[in-house]
Design a protein around this nucleic acid. Structure first.
Lengths: 214, 214
DNA sequence: ACATGTGAAGTTATTCACAGCC
DNA sequence: GGCTGTGAATAACTTCACATGT
């Protein structure tokens, strides 16, 4: 049983991004209702989430942006940093490499893998591409604990097995299949087809019933 | 208030994919516990979800694969088909075009838009790319009701406004920001950074607390 | 006044458990 | 005996509402 639910963690990540933007704009303090307006949530929700990081608000000034941002980072980030590996350097994989490039210093994609030998050894978006065979070795050497699976569905389970056997404990899976993994491995599925079909359904039966989230 | 929750719709989409695969393998019947095993859910959950489509199972044979698949499609698909538009033909946009190409005949990306005039007129992955100025016109002509936003965060709100003003009622948003839209528009956010940070967090504080979902 | 922190209430989602049926 | 369909129970999540502080 986690001290913090997956939903709260996701919202904390969102708050941090917002707080970082506010900080860049020179804003020093925020109230929960302001954050709520920015996230589309309620003020009570924001305060509950912030409780999880050990709160710090004052009734007069709200929360100190910098401090709150720091405390959230204390929960989300590993102080020593974490490394991720991408498997599958196709269209989607390359887009992900570009997307995540230099976004968070404490969480970077440090290696890529692809079954195509033509890609091995190349550096794509600043990330070295290795053949699958080197996976165990590279993961150990870089201390990688997060795997991003962007291979076709046929290969996804095999890749997941390999990654977890090498010590990876969290997977971000873009393949449209449910991976079978051990109890100690966390999987987040991003199922693009399902998401699109959901949007299409509610676009059709639209009206009412506002928004939603990952 | 929807007759069917967003979570159930997402699972129905998943069941349909599984059923399609089973059908291809020549399987004629399934039990709820088999579907549950494939999805990582419980048998009771599967039966509840199936109730939403008007059930059809028999205690002896379980559910008829073909029939169930058809009934789910009756809920998820618009019999006349639905069209989607992609906005932002960068790395991610192109990957999405490739991904969704020819996946579902009842739900296809029929147009792409990009602010870069160099892309206008070109056909990318079988999809015609238009300048942003033609958005209203093309959306009306193609009867598009779903928009996929794959532009940088700065432009996302403006794109959402344009799409919804043109009549789009469902958005799949990849930009890391919460879009402000009318009550009658459904938004599904796919926030890649938040998802990755979530995985990283649980990879670290791993053990226990199994899987999760979109 | 107005915002925080939080127990209590409310809401939504999931699972249990059993009647009914092949 | 094992499965479906579903009311009832449980669990998870969200919102209310108010005591407290400034």
């Amino acid at each position: 049983m986690p001290l913090t639910s997956a939903k709260t963690i996701a919202r904390l990540s969102l708050y941090r991004r917002l707080l970082t933007n506010l900080q860049a704009d020179g804003v020093r303090n925020v109230y929960s209702h302001q954050l709520a307006a920015l996230t589309g949530g309620t003020a009570a929700q924001v305060r509950r989430d912030i409780m999880a990081v050990g709160c710090a608000g004052s009734p007069t000034r709200g929360y100190d942006v910098e401090q709150l941002c720091g405390e959230i980072s204390g929960v989300l980030d590993d102080p020593d940093g974490q490394a991720a590996a991408l498997v599958g350097v196709g269209n989607l994989g390359r887009a992900l490499l570009a997307y995540f490039l230099q976004r968070r210093p404490k969480l970077m994609i440090r290696a890529a893998f692809d079954s195509d030998p033509a890609k091995a050894g190349r550096v794509i978006n600043g990330c070295r591409c290795h053949p699958l065979e080197e996976m165990g070795e590279v993961i150990a050497a870089e201390g990688i604990e997060v795997g991003i699976i962007a291979v076709p569905v046929e290969g996804a389970q095999r890749v997941a097995d390999r990654l977890t056997r090498s010590g990876v404990t969290g997977l971000l899976n873009f393949a449209p299949t449910r991976l079978r993994v051990g109890e100690d491995v966390f999987v987040e599925d991003i199922d693009l087809t399902t998401s699109l079909e959901k949007v299409a359904f509610f676009a059709r039966t639209q009206g009412a019933m506002g928004r939603n989230s990952t």
